[in-house]
Design a protein around this nucleic acid. Structure first.
Length: 438
RNA sequence: GGCCCCUUCGACUAGUGGUUAGGUCACAGCCCUCUCAAGGCUGUUGCACGGGUUCGAAUCCCGUAGGGGCUGCCA
């Protein structure tokens, strides 16, 4: 039997990194085993089920390159994949429990499942064999499975769906480990075989104090999209939280993770979230990705930041973006880093101006201006040669000589290669910028 | 409080009885360098504690402490 796994998020309008990692681990397992990865939307709480909220889930998963084999938009023969559309199925299972004498109704109309009050042993692929003594009703009250208004509670619909959808392996956050004995009672009462359980460690706040929550920086997948992280880098980082290739590799392509991924290699300890390392990996991926890929992502990031790239020739934009590849960890910094390519009123860093635009450097800048104006061949090599020659003539170290030029041309002391940016900017812009007074 | 899980550098981890306890992020210094990145080199920092078992424990057992999770008519 080929494995069937699932990711079953609730559409809250927010895709948590922890959820994304759960999805990723399930996806990896499906890919490793040739199984099927199902996406199911747990929208029993109709109030917060909005189209946009579901879209956030789709967008987040797709951005991470986690495609589902069955579920919304792609279909499948175990649907529907929204709990809100599965009421008839729940009614049927509810009746079965009712007929089996497992249910009773409270005065207010809520329905509870009568626990058999036995010890349930959860055999978990990650946590091992975990016994739960459910004999005491005061510490383990009977779970409610249906509200007075007829709506369903998570435990019940989750189990019913997993049974109906033929889920063979349930991989989810460890916060569900304590719920699992209850779920096993349901499986038993319904005469169904429980899946293989695999409870994966939680992602904790940076300081390790508590689960990462909505308020914590980096908790939302949307924030990575907005901040312009490399999707491959974030996915790579998520792989490393609770799993490791065990050979000291950090940057590792997903294709190489797939064959190595297995349940018994998953850690048991919760992991604190280190956004710093995530950003580092993002940078690594940007640096080493094909230039076309970087251009596409960088282009997108600039447009998102309001830079009107359409005003420039595609060739120009492309060359400009290429000089930035590998320089930044996160693309939200790109407008500040490369903005000078796309606007003439770029801001001049006051500290840089104070240090480099002085009466001492003025004659050098004039010399540079003159030399560049008369340069026969406008290419990187010629530009480099002439600048180096001038520096020597002035008896100034190259670095000290070039910084004032950089500040004039870009407004900053940090940026892409001087020779390249001069070439790309073009003679006209370069001369105009060098002509400016200070 | 009860139940469950966990415990190697600040963080992520490798390590399953004998290692100078390794790697990565971060941090510091040096080198390289047109700046910034990157790269190279070096360094600081760790087996929670206490008992066992053993010739020998980060590795096995027990206890303690600490952290996390669950304990909803949330998911």
């Amino acid at each position: 039997m080929t494995p069937r796994v699932r990711f079953a998020p609730s559409p809250t309008g927010f895709l948590h990194v922890g959820g994304a990692r759960t999805a990723l681990f399930n996806w990896l397992y499906a890919r490793r085993t040739g199984g099927t990865f199902v996406l199911r939307i747990e929208d029993t709480d109709a109030a917060r089920n909005t189209e946009e909220a579901v879209q956030v889930i789709y967008d987040g998963l797709r951005w991470l390159g986690i495609e589902w084999d069955e579920g919304p938009l792609v279909g499948g023969d175990r649907g529907p994949y929204f709990q809100s559309e599965r009421n008839a199925i729940y009614e049927r299972y509810f009746q079965r429990l009712q007929d089996g004498g497992h249910l009773y109704t409270e005065e207010n109309g809520a329905t509870r499942f009568r626990s058999p009050r036995e010890t349930v042993v959860v055999e978990d692929a990650v946590c091992g064999s975990v016994p739960f003594d459910l004999s005491d009703p005061t510490t383990h009250p009977d779970m409610t499975i249906r509200r007075p208004d007829g709506s369903w509670i998570f435990h019940f619909v989750n189990v019913v769906d997993d049974i109906e959808m033929g889920i063979t392996h349930v991989m989810r956050g460890e916060d569900h480990l304590s719920n699992t004995p209850k779920h096993m009672e349901l499986y038993r009462a319904l005469g169904a075989t429980p899946p293989v359980w695999a409870h994966i460690p939680l992602i904790l706040k940076k300081d390790g104090k508590g689960k990462m929550s909505k308020r914590d920086e980096g908790s939302s997948v949307a924030s990575y999209i907005a901040d312009g992280y490399a999707p491959e880098g974030v996915r790579n980082f998520l792989c490393l939280l609770g799993w490791s290739p065990k050979d000291n590799r950090e940057k590792i392509p997903i294709e190489e993770v797939i064959p190595l991924f297995d349940l018994d290699k998953i850690n048991r300890r919760n992991a604190a979230f280190d956004l710093e390392k995530c950003a580092w990996l993002s940078g690594e991926w940007f640096r080493e990705m094909p230039p076309e890929r970087h251009r596409a992502l960088a282009w997108e990031a600039l447009v998102r930041a309001g830079v009107d790239l359409a005003r420039f020739p595609a060739e120009y934009v492309q060359q400009a973006l290429d000089t930035c590849q590998g320089k930044l960890r996160v693309l939200k910094d790109l407008p500040a880093y490369a903005g000078f390519y796309f606007r003439d009123d770029y801001p001049i860093d006051p500290a840089a101006a104070g240090k480099h635009l002085t009466s001492e450097t003025k004659p050098r800048l004039e010399a540079v201006r003159t030399a560049l104006a008369g340069l026969p061949d406008w290419d990187v090599t010629s530009i480099e040669t002439v600048l180096k020659t001038l520096a020597t003539q002035f008896g100034v170290k190259l670095g000290a000589f070039l910084q004032p030029v950089r500040v004039m041309l870009t407004g900053s002391t940090a940026g892409p290669s001087m020779y390249h940016l001069v070439e790309i900017l073009g003679r006209e812009k370069v001369l105009e910028r060098l002509d400016r007074s200070f």
